[in-house]
């Protein structure tokens, strides 16, 4: 209210309840979701750790020390060491950057493509809808692994020459994982659009002369997003795991780049005598996926004003 004339300001608010914007209201509701808040804290700590951790824990990720092979957690190596004596904490911190970045970026690609395809199909109907759904089914039925092999074989060289090895592989992996995970979202969004566009509040907006874009952006999409948010959190988890699979097959990042998935697969042969090796990266994936899921639940509830949230 700064800058306004005090008299008019008090007159206009009067007995009215304090006005809150939709974002502040959503934040207020989100805070009441205890698990979501705890999860948000955990995820923030994880993100912060992988961002600044490598600067604080300055042990190199590839320092080989055969005198300290497969050691359990100690002060020198809080998460132990692997079969080459490399420090697992340093590798987990560094790998988290890649895993989290791949997870979020691939989720964004999947959600973007999925919402776009679903929205266009749901709004257009008829032949366009039939064509897009045909495309969706096609993607669902494609054998993914041989195709991944082919795509990476075809494009890795060219892309890495242009933007450098790590970035090139990153872009490729994000596009591939995102490009093979949008189908569920598209179907979800299309179904939501079909039911929502017949609703009376959409009809009312049409009667007011709202454009198609406005109908979609203001009325249909916001009401369709609940399940999409949940799907998005699952997609992040799926992407982190998919990246592990790719790395394992030698299709992802080079073997010397530690990602969480890569660390897990490297550890699997040593589970009997060095369980800590698998435990720590596994716990990271577990914590990330779980907290993202809870945050998704919290977000869905916070953005749905109908849902009464008990304090």
């Amino acid at each position: 209210m700064a800058g306004s004339i005090p008299a008019s300001a008090t007159a206009s608010t009067g007995a009215a309840a304090p006005r809150v914007g939709p974002w502040r209201e959503a934040w207020r509701r989100f805070r009441k979701h205890r698990l979501a808040v705890v999860s948000l804290v955990i995820l923030s700590v994880l993100v912060l750790a992988v961002l600044v951790g490598p600067f604080a824990w300055q042990v190199p990720i590839d320092e080989i020390d055969f005198t300290a092979r497969l050691q359990g957690p100690s002060w020198a190596h809080p998460m132990g060491t692997d079969d080459l004596g490399q420090d697992i904490l340093a590798r987990v911190l560094y790998g988290g950057r890649i895993s989290l970045a791949v997870g979020f970026a691939a989720m964004m690609v999947a959600i973007f493509v999925g919402v776009l395809v679903g929205a266009v199909a749901g709004m257009a109907g008829g032949r366009i809808d039939a064509g897009l759904m045909w495309l969706t089914d096609l993607f669902l039925s494609l054998p993914q692994l041989p195709l991944l092999l082919l795509i990476i074989y075809l494009f890795r060289e060219g892309l890495t020459q242009v933007v450098g090895q790590e970035l090139g592989v990153f872009i490729l992996i994000v596009i591939i994982i995102g490009g093979f995970n949008w189908m569920q979202v598209a179907r979800l969004v299309r179904a939501q659009f079909f039911s929502l566009r017949e609703k009376e509040f959409v009809e009312a907006a049409r009667a007011l002369g709202a454009s198609r874009l406005r109908l979609v952006v203001r009325h249909i999409l916001p009401n369709a997003l609940g399940p999409v948010i949940v799907a998005a959190t699952i997609d992040i988890a799926a992407a982190i795991i998919a990246e592990s699979t790719l790395s394992f097959l030698g299709l992802g990042f080079p073997p010397d780049v530690p990602t969480w998935g890569r660390l897990l697969f490297d550890a699997k042969d040593n589970l009997d005598f060095a369980p800590h090796w698998a435990l720590f990266p596994g716990a990271m994936i577990f914590l990330t996926v779980l907290s993202i899921n809870f945050i998704g639940d919290g977000l869905r509830d916070a953005f749905d004003p109908r849902r009464v949230i008990a304090s």
């Binding site: 609703k199 009376e200 509040f201 009809e203 009312a204 907006a205 009667a207 007011l208 203001r218 009325h219 916001p222 009401n223 953005f303 749905d304 004003p305 109908r306």
Partner: peptide
């Protein structure tokens, strides 16, 4: 303009 029958379906809940 138009006024609808169902006052629960005719207002955008969000």
């Amino acid at each position: 303009q138009i006024i609808f029958q169902d006052p629960f379906a005719s207002l955008n809940p969000r």
